[in-house]
């Protein structure tokens, strides 16, 4: 088992590519891995799909008003812990 971060930058992609790229990336997560998605806006359309697919998420504020989203499988405590540690280093998301 490994604890690892899969990072994707979707900030230069037009809709709906960020959503499609993020969903594909979550499907490829291995045990212990979490997804760190870098975007410039809050991906509201992604949240519903994440819940349907049994993923958890935490949205944080990055540099220059960026939106940083951390995603993990709910049945993967190691990934969740790693994601929480990484997300905890950033302030909560504010519009």
């Amino acid at each position: 088992m490994e604890t690892d971060c899969v990072f994707i930058d979707v900030s230069d992609l037009p809709p709906p590519e960020p959503l499609a790229v993020a969903m594909a990336a979550t499907e490829r997560l291995r045990p212990g891995q979490y997804l760190h998605m870098h975007h410039w806006r809050e991906p509201l359309l992604l949240y519903k799909r994440l819940i349907q697919k049994n993923f958890g998420y935490d949205t944080r504020s990055g540099q220059d008003d960026a939106c940083e989203i951390f995603v993990w499988r709910l049945d993967d405590p190691a990934a969740q812990q790693a994601a929480n540690v990484a997300a905890g280093q950033l302030p909560p998301w504010r519009e």
Binding site: E42, L44, L45, Y47, K48, I51, Y57, T59
Partner: peptide, 10 residues
């Protein structure tokens, strides 16, 4: 976070 989900349901 929940408001995004609620809004999409509608």
């Amino acid at each position: 976070m929940s408001y995004g989900v609620l809004s999409l349901a509608q």
